[in-house]
Design a protein around this nucleic acid. Structure first.
Lengths: 332, 332
DNA sequence: CTGAAAGCGCTAACAA
DNA sequence: TTGTTAGCGCTTTCAG
């Protein structure tokens, strides 16, 4: 079933049918005849044909490190919401934190497989940059600031700073950090820096024994907290790079018989679901993941429309969500 | 940059270049010349052209109700893993539990937009069936058994039965359920039936006041648990349709000063991350979501290859994961 | 093994 | 407003 069949059936030319589906420069009578033929056959124009001709794909490539991470899923939902309404489809690649697969995918999208690309990357390597520079379709980066590209970022450093500062204000004298790999520019590096700045500003000395690096899981947070608590002088506050890690750390603290927040304060980042159902709700920073997806999609649409649109960097602010894990005088 | 340019550059015909990228019926000498030209220019054959000609898209449509749900994300990850290796890309549609959008997407994919479709649906309506029957591309359904289609299902009824039975064996006399909307055939209807069967078999009478219906969130579980606990004679066990709901319910029980599992037992379904970091770890059923994605993708590949492959139903078993929320004599 | 030529399904330019 | 014609980038005959 193709455009010619419909044309024959409706007794018009191919062009008329094409117009029916596009601009619609057509008489009511023919329009009606075509409508009937289409209805009868359930005909749906083949996209590939249109694509060769129009040199568009109506596809947007989305590269994400881990689909089953709450934050990535939220960003992707935001992207989908906007793009769907504009007639674009999402071509999704889940790289499972595999950096070389990220590069591969970029390379795959580079030419004309898709009209545009949105990249959520955990770490941008030199290899990434090489491929990124060769991109011939508009590309937006979410989660970090990459030279030469429009980006939507979260204020990871600021959020980490604010949370650490908050614990210090609440009386923390020995804050520790359970971070993640610094290769991850946002969740790893930036959040570490924020933590660090809060310490420096408050004149608290850094102790390497108060710095742990976990994976993105609660289990891992539990283990690292265990190490912190086995110190001769354990910390009295723990800033965790994610709420999941914080939840694990909390469990560990409670099992050690510590009272939260009195004996030890805990904070996370991201405002994940988990943070509100822990024995003591976790103070965290809401990072507007959904919004960043929405904004990235809008930026892409912008670039898709005007070929020469200017590069822009959008930094989304965080919201501190204070809960029981830091409030002094909290009733458990 | 197209195939003709490369042909010119390499001093061969378009056909030769096409062969270079396909079957490769070509002399070593020309192959080398083409390779160089491709390398120089970074040329990547345009897919749309190939698609019109070959009448394939190398795209698989995946329709999911909610990307940011842990179970959906896991299924999708499984699907992606298999399909990626076979050269297919995922065209993802997130319907946000919007049934009419599901139908729309099916309709959109129906003809030749994609080579195949994998549908994760929460509820199959008559409208779904109408569109499904018209599908002209292989379609696999995940999560429920739909007549006429190859399906990958979880044993929701069995898992619910086993968990409820387990609580009864551990001494529960008044089991309650916090389920979800029965429109959802798997998480709603089937899990309710499993709960129900366990009660009947054990000669326990159903009480309507022990049946609550929640949304998919911990908050909602909390609220519904509250209602259960405000009964004159509250239940001594709660089967929850998901771990998230269970986590919320647990929080509520603890706040009511109840001891888990001694005063009240709690179970969930799905083996979500949250279940292992609650104050008392939650007994649950592992549902192999990732695997179901993998298997669905394999089934699709099968149907993509042989036009006349037989319909099959794959039912994946569950694994009961017993944790503190049901173990009698559990040390908290 | 190779290239010319035809044609996939569609849209755009043109002349009517 | 309409139909004819050309051609998007590619693959596939077909004749050599």
């Amino acid at each position: 079933m193709n455009i010619s069949d419909i044309a024959k059936l409706a007794g018009v030319s191919k062009s008329a049918v094409s117009r029916y589906f596009n601009d619609g420069y057509i008489s009511d009578e023919k329009r009606e005849r075509i409508r009937e033929a289409v209805e009868q056959t359930g005909y749906d124009p083949n996209n590939s044909g249109r694509k060769v001709r129009k040199k568009i794909t109506s596809l947007v490539g989305v590269i994400i490190p881990k689909l089953s991470s709450e934050s990535c899923a939220k960003v992707t939902e935001g992207i989908g919401e906007v793009l769907d309404n504009e007639g674009y489809q999402l071509l999704l690649v889940n790289t499972s934190y595999n950096s070389s697969k990220e590069v591969e995918s970029l390379d795959f999208f580079r030419n004309n497989r898709v009209d545009g690309v949105i990249l959520l990357s955990s770490a941008i390597t030199k290899l990434h940059m090489t491929v990124l520079k060769k991109m011939r379709v508009p590309t937006i980066v979410v989660g970090q600031n990459v030279a030469g590209f429009s980006c939507v970022c979260h204020d990871d450093e600021g959020a980490a700073y604010a949370l650490t500062k908050l614990m210090i204000e609440r009386g923390a004298a020995r804050p520790a950090i359970i971070g993640v790999d610094r290769m991850d520019t946002a969740a790893g590096q930036a959040r570490y820096e924020g933590f660090s700045r809060a310490l420096s500003e408050s004149g608290i000395t850094h102790r390497t024994e108060y710095v742990e690096t976990a994976r993105f899981t609660a289990d891992s947070g539990y283990d690292k907290a265990n190490r912190l608590l086995s110190q001769p002088i354990p910390p009295d506050a723990v800033f965790c790079a994610t709420d999941n890690i914080a939840a694990g750390a909390m469990l560990c603290c409670l099992e050690h018989g510590l009272k939260i927040p009195d004996d030890i304060m805990i904070t996370g980042v991201g405002d994940s679901q988990v943070g509100s159902i822990t024995p003591v709700p976790i103070t965290t920073a809401h990072l507007h993941y959904r919004t960043s997806g929405i904004e990235a999609a809008k930026m892409l649409l912008e670039e898709l429309r005007k070929k020469d649109s200017v590069r822009r960097i959008l930094k989304l602010e965080y919201d501190i969500v204070e809960r029981g894990s830091t409030k002094i005088n909290h009733i458990t």
